[in-house]
Design a protein around this nucleic acid. Sequence first.
RNA 1: GUGGGCGUAGCUCAACUGGUUAGAGCACCGGACUGUGGCUCCGGGGGUUGGGGGUUCGACUCCCCUCGCCCACCCCA
Length: 422
Amino acid sequence: MVKMIKAVRGFKDVLPEDTVYWRYLEEEARTLFESFGFREIRIPVLEKLELFQRGIGSTTDIVEKEMYVFEDRNGELLALRPEATAGVARAFIENSLHMKDPVNKYYFFGPMFRHERPQAGRLRQFHQLNVEAYGVKSPSLDAEIMAMLHMLTQKLKIDDALHLEINHIGCPQCRPIYRDILINFLNNQKEKLCKDCKRRLEKNPLRVLDCKKEGCKNIASQAPQIIDYLCDQCKDYFDKTLDYLAVSEVPFVINPMIVRGLDYYTGVVFELTTDELGAQNAVAAGGRYDNLMKELGGPDIPGVGFAIGVERTVALMKKRYTLEEETPLFFFAVMGEEAKRVALPLALKLRQEGVKCEMEHSDKSLKSQMRKANKLKVRFTVIVGEDEVRKGVLTVRDMEEKKQFEIQAQISELLKLAEAAR
RNA sequence: GUGGGCGUAGCUCAACUGGUUAGAGCACCGGACUGUGGCUCCGGGGGUUGGGGGUUCGACUCCCCUCGCCCACCCCA
């Protein structure tokens, strides 16, 4: 037997029964985002490796060990994007969009690539819906964006499964101060920390705060919290953001343990989490990234945004309701060459009018064609056989009413039926 | 990268302590007045039991290796 070629590990096919959900999500997101003034941008899947090293941070796990890196034929190092924000920022700078657009709000949809071990809710190729707003640093904008995310989950009827968790991780002034205090605190109890946390202590001390191990949790619960060490500006900014959320009736909880994994985050950060999907509980996440643009060699322009995990969102949708593909209105059951000569032009004209229909092309018995029509869940089966051809008529069977009748073999007659069935 | 679990028809699963041509349901195809669906009945196709090696008279069942999938850690959407 010839060896079967299978998809690459962690890369999945999305079959028609599932694309219904994907499309529903995309369409709801598009109309919602656009109503907020966000415009669609599309960027390449492949970027120079350096973009991600500088944008995301060269010591983050994503850049250090999860990227698909390739050498181009000219020796240049390229990477499949592990996330979208760095690329959007690059496009923004490269096209001088801050000089052109009065409003710099973009949304984006596409695949991302991370070489991790697959598990529930985690793939090597996965999809994100991203939202990015550049040029303004304002609590009301941050709150508006979180409200938009909340509205999307309401439209998708999955908001009951989600919690908006929010935190503020400080600015370049106050974060280092807190960081030192935390490191100092943790160092004093270093022996009680787990193996992973000792490593985290070196690399990303904030992560110790959300370790799942009991011992570390106990220590973390007594650790100093960033909120108590924010500078006046950050504190004020955070308070205002929370107030805007409250008056907008967006439910949220403050979670001082939220830390983002990408270096570019500053200030307000948030996650949309669920406890219905196993260990990978973040359905969306985002925050401010006020230094990203500058670090990529662009203008000093602040940004805020979030990314929604499409597969995870679809998983929640599927747990709650069923979406089905649109069924054809007509099925042409044909017997013989002459019948096909009658049916084909009629089917083509119906589609021209936007009516979904199917016709049989293989030479099967009427019984088998009826079975197919039934399986397709069509409303009308149009039977065309020798008798019909001779008389210039069509036999129409109403599959729901289980009644059938003859009509003239004219497109106008079929359109009348289509109109009546709507 | 590290752990654990699992691999039998398209899908969900069977097959006593190793023992005859590996079964069932669903799905698929066809038939039951050679032009009529959904129900029922009947029939049919489809598996080198993930792959390789070993033990044995005999392996889906035992052993080894390998590949793959799943879940968790790590990390994150």
